[in-house]
Design a protein around this nucleic acid. Structure first.
Lengths: 120, 120
DNA sequence: AGCATATTTAACCACATGGTTGAACATGAT
DNA sequence: ATCATGTTCAACCATGTGGTTAAATATGCT
């Protein structure tokens, strides 16, 4: 039985709900970065970027190692895994639905109830 | 190449960042529910629950069919799939890390750098 | 028509969020 | 000691969020 800690999921999903922070995670997936390197791609003050990083840290997704005067951030995968497992509970659901749709289409292709709908 | 619509991900992850709404999605995964049925398990006014449902709707995760005076809500899987695909980009990353860890452990089990750490 | 049910809307409140600027702090270089 | 660099902190602002209560709306029942 999979335990889902509600508070963890709250902070993780909240942290993911911002494009700047998602971009930072993407950058960290490529390798460690200093705070300024993480801030650089974004059109905002360093202080603002610093706050975003702190949100990611609070969510446990980023670890920080203070090396001299620079802070080196790295990705901590565990919370993302939690989020993934939560969403994973629904994979069964939607694959079921998609299978049903596919079956429907195979049964009568002329009805085609969907436009291509690839824009995502 | 997977297109990730930033705005969609924003609203979806934001919607997921609240335990009440996650519980509502779980309930909807079991089957359709009216607004009051969705509200019932939660210690809050109907108006508050109604707002939560609207957040889920805005995120595209819930569809509403007005049948008479009751509104029947159902789960719309596409946005969750988007979120899943986004997180999926990191699956490679963390399985890599875990594989590395596992290799480390196999190489020298005595070092065992981790407590069980199953609490999640 | 009149009443009950299902839901939303509006106005409000406290607090969080995402941004700013300017000052502070800590470290490294000269 | 001084100065520059990397980062945070504090104060502030506008807007968003999650909740409330009270009133409005829409439908169904008798």
């Amino acid at each position: 039985m999979v335990e889902h800690d509600s508070q963890t999921l709250d902070t993780v999903f909240q942290a993911l709900g911002d494009a700047t922070r998602r971009a930072m995670l993407a950058q960290l997936a490529e390798g460690e970065s200093t705070v300024s390197a993480l801030a650089e791609p974004h059109a905002m003050s360093l202080a603002a970027a610093s706050k975003h990083i702190k949100v990611l840290e609070r969510a446990g997704m980023v670890r920080r190692e203070v090396r001299g005067r620079t802070h080196i951030c790295s990705l901590e995968p565990a919370p993302l895994m939690s989020a993934d497992r939560w969403i994973g509970m629904y994979r069964r659901y939607w694959t079921g639905r998609l299978d049903a749709l596919e079956a429907l289409l195979r049964a009568d292709p002329a009805k085609n109830p969907l436009p291509p709908k690839k824009g995502e």
